[in-house]
Structure formats: structure tokens, C-alpha cells
Design a protein around this nucleic acid. Sequence first.
DNA 1: GAAATGTGTCCGCTTAACGGACAATTTTGT
DNA 2: ACAAAATTGTCCGTTAAGCGGACACATTTC
Lengths: 213, 213
Amino acid sequence: MTEGSLTLDRGLALLQAVADAGGDAATISELAVTIGASRAAVYRLLVPLSERGLVWRDGNKVRLGVGLLRLAGQVLPQLREAAQPVLRALAEAVGATAHLSVAQGPQAQAVAVVEPSWTNFHVAYRVGTRHSLTSGAAGKAMTLRPGGEGWVTSSGELEAGASGVAAPVRGVPGLRASVGVVSLEPLDAATVGPQVVAAAASLTAVLRSPNDS
Amino acid sequence: MTEGSLTLDRGLALLQAVADAGGDAATISELAVTIGASRAAVYRLLVPLSERGLVWRDGNKVRLGVGLLRLAGQVLPQLREAAQPVLRALAEAVGATAHLSVAQGPQAQAVAVVEPSWTNFHVAYRVGTRHSLTSGAAGKAMTLRPGGEGWVTSSGELEAGASGVAAPVRGVPGLRASVGVVSLEPLDAATVGPQVVAAAASLTAVLRSPNDS
DNA sequence: GAAATGTGTCCGCTTAACGGACAATTTTGT
DNA sequence: ACAAAATTGTCCGTTAAGCGGACACATTTC
């Protein structure tokens, strides 16, 4: 791999440092020592960050800006697009509606949904739907501890007569998510479970940047 | 103002270009012409962006990464901290609970809440509460058209017996937000309204980066 | 009132980024 | 099936962009 841009890396380190400061924001001098650069460098780096609204000056402190919200708003749509093929394969194989959900605070939100093409009946699950992490297979899967079960099942928790199987997407830092299927009929967990786990694993594979160890 | 870092600016322009591509992601060649740099430059810039999870390669396409979600998660806490003084002043002046809310999709979420110190009774409004944009003063204020009314009032829409006055935070690109007060007694809109508008304006002032025209 | 800490800017030196060019690979067209 | 066209990923010499020490000024601390 060719060497990447050092200056951009410093700038992103600075952005990260501002974020890591948390509620009590950091001063410019503190940020300089944190990222291991001169104060003058921090001034130079802050200009583009500030112009794009990723950061702003609150007196002597530096805080994250709302421009990040605009950028982050595009993450889920792109994630949705990228997950489409995996969900398509899962939905066709199982013959049930497949979905990808991510955790936002205490709730799970459906980000991508694919319905099977060859079934007479299937569940229509709307993208954007939110529900608590404590009910429904999609939510409960995100709370699974590593090393425990590979998948979870649910029955009638969110909607009477609907059954679900879901597995967590693990190993992607900063993301708590799950993939699963929902069906009108009870699902055979012994056969569907591994399929769902495999789909989650292949999503992990593409989401984890290739240069990670 | 001293000149800012060009390389960082190019990198952020690249990140923005990836976001602007929307659902159908962009190839490296397309990104190169978009930001007006050579293809080799895009390769160099992508390395740090990718290492920090802001971006990832999906085949030949480039997509936004989940690292942005982690960063964006810190925005609201810092915004909360920054809004504290303004809300404090508003709450003490009006004698009612003051709050800052931001729009997330079709819902409004309370980001910061300050209760007055000298009243016998006041509304306790929990941070993180969500409700539809169509009900409650906080939500309706965000839907106000520029040039129209400066504030909106509500009564008993979210909770029986509670009245609210709220004004939108305008002029901060990428942010739909409002500040307001809620009270157990009916509020005198003629006096409270201007105070709420003033608080919203001073928040706009600090949020808008100082180097804007 | 002196010491300490912080901000903002300038300038010469060095290094890191630039982009044209090349080889390898994939897609398109006849 | 073979050639033409388009794309990808990498190298390297040149140039310009980033680096950090230093200075002037403001603010806080003891």
C-alpha cells in the first residue's frame, strides 16, 4: 500500500481529538499536544475543518460542528445500498423478508429491507421503522455478548403472528447492527439461523476496511 | 485570516464528494474530476479517510463509512454543553423550563434542557425525548417558513396542562432546531415570544462559524 | 507586578504532496 | 476472438505546501 497523505491524517486526528474531548471541549494548545503537532499546525488545520462546519470555535474551546450531522445523514442510505445484494440472497434463500437494522441509542432502526420474489405471502417491513432494543429479534441480536449464541429468535413480539431470526453484525467498530428475517410462519431456527449468521458475517467482511489486520 | 491547509481541504472536499454521490456511489476517477485533482491525489487522500473509517471501498465504488456515525454521536453532547448558558438565561428570565431541540427525520428530539431555579413548580422535561414535528411548539417551530412568524405556541398538545412557546434556530446550514420554554401555566406569548426568539438568535450567532460573511 | 498560560501570525527550511507517465486489468465494440 | 478504449493502481522527479520556532499581545494566577 502506498503511503497516504500525512497532512490529511493529521487533520483527521485533530477532528478525532476534538470528538474525544467530549463535553468539556479542548483548547487549541491542548489539541496541539494531543495530536503531537505545533500550535501553528493546528491553526492551519482548523481552517478547512471550520469552513466545512465540522468544527467551530466556542470562545477558546473547539467543538464538533453540525456539518458532521449532514455527512452522517448520508451514511445509512449508502449502507443500505451496499447491503442490498447480501439481503437479496438471504431473502431468496430463506423465502422471507430480510432486513438490516442499526442501533441508535436505545432503539433499533430498520435501514434496509428486501422482500423475497417467489413467495405467495411475505411480511412487508417498512424501512425506517424503530422499536426498542429489548423486543424483537433484530433488537435483541444487537445486545448479544460476544462468544455467546450466534443468533436469536422471536415470535409475536413486535407484531402478532410474525416470527423473526436475527444475528449481530460484529467486528465493525462504532456500529451496532444486526441482520435477520421475518416471516408469517414459524421459522426453522436450526436451518435459518446459520444462514442469517453467514449473511451477517459477509456484511462484516465488506464493512471492515480491507487494510485492517 | 491565515491561509488554511490545502491538502486537508482537498481531503474534506473528497469526503463531501463521496457524500454528495448519494446512493449510487462514485468511482475514484469520478471523484478526481469532482474535486479537481489528479487520480493519484485521490488515492493518497483515501488512505487516511479509509483508515479512520470515514470511507470504505465497495468494489470500485467509494462509500461513506460508519466512523462518521461515531463522530456524529459526539456532536449533540457538545452542542448541549454549548447551549447551556443561553438556556440558563432564558429559563431564569421566563421562569419556565427552557429547551433546545433538533430535528432528526420526521421527529424532534430534546437535546438540552435547563430548569429555572427560583420557581415553586416547573415542568421537568427529559433530555432525549422525541415527538413528532407536527405537534408541540418545539417541533412546529422547525417547520416555520422563513419570513413568517417568529415563534409558535402550543397548549396541551404533548401533555395535558402544559403550554409551550418556541422559535426556530435559523441560518445554520445542516441544522433544523428550535429553542423554547414549557410551563404549567399559560404563557404570555407577547412577552415570552420575543425572549425565545432572542435566545434562538444568540444560539445562531455562536453556531454559525465566525468567518462566514 | 511578575510569572504563567493562551492566542494569533510571520517566515525560512525541509519535507511531503503533486501529477504526468507506465504497466496491468477490465470493458467495449466489430 | 482479437483489438481498441477505458480504468485501476503505482512510481518518481519537481515544486510548492506544510512545518515549527519565534515574536507580540491578551488574559489569568499567585
